[in-house]
Design a protein around this nucleic acid. Structure first.
Lengths: 232, 232
DNA sequence: GCCTTTTTTCACCAGGTGGTGAAAAGTGTA
DNA sequence: TACACTTTTCACCACCTGGTGAAAAAAGGC
């Protein structure tokens, strides 16, 4: 519905207004992304996607094949952008600070691109992060899906942290990463839970508040775990 | 299937072996719990639940009504036990340590009951935690569901932390709780992601490893956030 | 034994599901 | 114009969905 209106409105007087081909493909992905993010894979029907995109059901299968392939296409579309942004951010940090790197700096370089993209990248990204958070907590097939798309950049984080704290054990690094990703994904998915929980004091849409706390939180936690492990 | 076999096997030679009434109700809840945990609410059909419980589909509606009510029954069944265990644990900590309480102690009293229950409470609890983790990351209705069942004990945590660090602002406390709950739920849901990510170094089923790190991690993060906020 | 109440099964419904095949409409090229 | 090709629509299928009502079976009270 929404997308259909937008599409019809988009062409002003000059150009032919109807989206076609690749544009329409993109429209379908947008609708699917929003719906999957809100209701999960099984909570969405191809009919709903088609309806919101203002498109016939058969067209979805024409472009993407089965429903699951549509889901993968949604997941894949932004994964590359995300991975590249994080990789660039971390490389830049390493090259700029070299031997003066800190744990908090590395973690910031890892997380901040996501916050910035969520803030500046438009509405689609918020849906996407909610989707990833949901997949991250899906036991059945979430683990492999996450691994398939995001493992390399995580290994880059772990390796960089290992440079900053050479004495740290990999066991600790991986566990700390899991704690970190749990916090980060929940914050990025903006479920609204903190709004009601805090009775209006905090807002899950306030990513600036997240930025002001999450980096320090994770870094301190990391240092504490490493220190405790070394002590034992 | 599984449950049906168990049920048939359970009665040895003496007693009538067939479960009935409340026992059967419990069997249905068990099957539903495991399936919902793995595949989410929409990923499970009442037929699957019935089949795994070795029961007719209509019996599910006879006992629980609509599918959503079955889900709520699953969610509710263990919520009370959970909340009471946590509340008792925190009260005991407060009474035992009084003015000598620490942030890490409070956080441990809040989280450890869940770890212990997951380790000692039998297989159903692991499914249940996976289920809660999934609901926690569901934007559509996860927020209200979590609030409905778990808000009171969270407020107890926040209030206790406020006693330990009276200068801390509530904003910081709530954000730290969100970070904490993200880490905790992901660890408890045992998605298996850390196994593949760490290439066998860590195992998501190793809750002892979680216990050895998560409390210190969260406590240090909390202290860092509070310190940073006070400095500003 | 009989009778009432609860528990369990069976047959079934209206509507929705993912997906397909062929026709139609549109587009570009000559 | 005619032609080949891509994109979009339409009608449709076999199957599954949550849910119901009545009959059957079991359990309990007397």
């Amino acid at each position: 519905m929404t997308a259909a209106k937008t599409r019809a409105r988009s062409g002003g007087r000059g150009r032919p207004s109807k989206a076609t081909g690749l544009d329409l493909k993109e429209t379908i992905l947008d609708s699917a992304e929003g719906l999957f993010a809100r209701h999960g894979f099984h909570g969405v029907t191809t009919r709903q996607v088609a309806s919101e995109a203002g498109v016939d059901t058969a067209l979805i299968h024409y472009y993407f094949g089965a429903k699951r392939e549509l889901f993968d296409a949604v997941f894949l579309r932004r994964a590359d952008i995300l991975n590249q942004a994080r990789s660039v951010s971390m490389n830049a940090y390493v090259e700029t600070f070299g031997a003066r790197m800190t744990v908090e700096g590395v973690i910031t370089a890892f997380i901040d691109p996501l916050l910035r993209i969520s803030q500046e990248g438009g509405g689609g990204w918020k849906s996407y992060f909610a989707l990833v958070a949901q997949v991250n907590n899906t036991p059945a097939w979430g683990g492999e899906t996450m691994a398939r798309f995001f493992d390399p950049v995580v290994h880059q984080l772990v390796d960089t942290l290992k440079i900053v704290r050479p004495d740290a054990e990999y066991r600790d690094l991986y566990w700390c990463y899991q704690f970190l990703t749990g916090s980060m994904m929940l914050a990025l998915s903006e479920t609204g839970r903190i709004d009601t929980l805090s009775e209006g004091v905090c807002h899950s849409s306030d990513l600036e508040a997240v930025r002001a706390r999450l980096f320090a939180y994770c870094a301190a936690g990391f240092e504490a775990v490493v220190a405790r492990s070394g002590k034992t």
